[in-house]
């Protein structure tokens, strides 16, 4: 059986942890990044400013999910935890940013630090580096319900023993959510719910905001 040990989420207005029942508004803060960085990352995030927006949101949601699951980390100390991330548009915005910049430079020079975010898996790579996650890492997309696809892949990887724990989630439209999945034989601590409970919510195909509301209800046992 696969259990969910923590869920972290962030939108343009608020962020939180499901098991902890946290829902923190931040839309009125002046400096979006510096405020969130100090609040969300327990360890300093090297070069966070150069990350693209999808990478930042992904890393925020992963930090919150790990905190929710009670998984601590120290940069440089690695753990066999994987990441499966999903999205609707991949790296499209970063592709546009890179190519426009290249054209603006007269098609002679391009910037490597923009190019690296033109891979859909790069935001997950940034998270793997900061949190020291050495398990399987891949990006997935599907015509319908990419988040459900990411959850399916992640739970099958854990079930088949490819990795003992995995983060699965999605970043899109200025919002991100990540779930921590583990097999019950790996850890019985901090279990929030069965993976099937999450699947039942995802199957409803609701908006991000409504999904978070349902997830928070799940903690209260109202589902």
């Amino acid at each position: 059986m696969i259990n969910i040990h923590g869920i972290g989420w962030i939108t343009k207005e608020e962020y939180g942890c499901i098991a902890r029942g946290e829902k923190i508004p931040y839309k009125n803060v002046v400096e979006f990044d510096s405020f969130l960085r100090k609040r969300i990352f327990p360890c300093p995030f090297k070069n966070f400013g150069r990350l693209d927006r999808i990478s930042k949101l992904t890393c925020y949601a992963i930090a919150l999910a790990m905190k929710d699951a009670g998984i601590s980390y120290i940069p440089q100390k690695r753990q066999d935890i994987g990441i499966v991330g999903a999205g609707d548009s991949g790296s499209l915005q970063s592709d546009i940013d890179y190519f426009k910049d290249y054209l603006d430079c007269g098609r002679t020079l391009s910037r490597g630090n923009l190019f690296i975010y033109t891979l859909p898996s790069s935001p997950l790579g940034e998270a793997a580096i900061h949190f020291g996650l050495q398990g399987p890492l891949l990006y997935t997309a599907a015509p319908e319900e990419p988040l459900r696809t990411a959850m399916t892949i992640a739970s099958e990887m854990v079930l088949s023993g490819e990795t003992p724990a995995i983060l699965a989630g999605m970043t899109e439209d200025g919002a991100a959510v990540y779930f921590v999945l583990m097999k019950d034989s790996v850890s019985n601590k901090n279990i929030l719910c069965d993976e099937k409970d999450i699947r039942a919510i995802l199957n409803k195909g609701m908006t991000f905001k409504k999904m978070i509301k349902e997830l928070l209800n799940l903690r209260k046992g109202n589902n």
Binding site: A128, I129, P136
Partner: peptide, 12 residues
């Protein structure tokens, strides 16, 4: 058989 991992070390 197959095995997947990440270096968790550097982007490039």
């Amino acid at each position: 058989g197959w095995g997947l991992s990440d270096d968790a070390n550097h982007m490039t």
